[in-house]
């Protein structure tokens, strides 16, 4: 009959379950996806893989102008960009983005550097056809045949991140 009396009395004696927000704010969980903070402009090579993988089309990358732009109002904070980045230069904050009165974009201009590189071929004498570059390529643009000693690059797919050259144990990949 009076089934709810027990929870009622217990709640009377217990501290409230809620916090006095906004005066008491919970610590964010370490691995929570709060919002995308931006990129490390020193590390980013503006390969555009993040923009290609983004399910919400929230990222725009201009390779020539070296500009990375995020529309935070389109972003669904899935953090696919951060995971697919070959340079791991996109940072995700565990804290949610503060409420905003108007729409704004997060645009980051990269540090000016020499003309962007792209892999052109391999040094056939150094290469051992181990296939590490093919595994490292985030776009699957490289194929290596160990038995035939063949290395080929799909230039259409290549984003120019140079992850292959970085991972190559023999430093056999030649840049353009």
């Amino acid at each position: 009959m009076f089934e709810f009396l027990r929870p009622v009395f217990r709640n009377l004696l217990r501290r409230p379950s809620t916090r006095e927000y906004p005066f008491a704010v919970r610590e964010p969980f370490r691995d929570a996806r709060g919002h995308i903070e931006g990129i490390d402009r020193e590390k980013c090579v503006f390969c555009g893989i993040c923009a290609k993988k983004c399910p919400a089309d929230a990222i725009r990358v201009d390779r020539q102008e070296r500009v990375w732009e995020l529309d935070s109002f389109k972003c669904v904070v899935c953090s696919v960009c951060a995971e697919s980045c070959p340079k791991k230069c996109i940072s995700v904050s565990p804290v949610h983005r503060a409420p905003a009165g108007e729409k704004s974009r997060c645009a980051i201009e990269g540090a000016k550097m020499e003309t962007p590189k792209k892999p052109a071929g391999i040094n056939k004498e150094a290469c051992v056809f181990c296939g590490i570059c093919a595994k490292a390529c985030p776009e699957g643009a490289i194929s290596v045949d160990r038995t035939e000693k063949m290395w080929s690059l799909d230039k259409e797919k290549c984003a120019g991140c140079m992850a292959c050259a970085e991972k190559c144990p023999k430093k056999a990949i030649i840049a353009e």
């Binding site: 969980f29 370490r30 691995d31 929570a32 996806r33 669904v76 904070v77 899935c78």
Partner: peptide, 12 residues
């Protein structure tokens, strides 16, 4: 869910 997957409901 937030501690393990990163979000509360749409955990991706």
């Amino acid at each position: 869910m937030e501690a393990t997957a990163g979000s509360r409901v749409i955990i991706s």
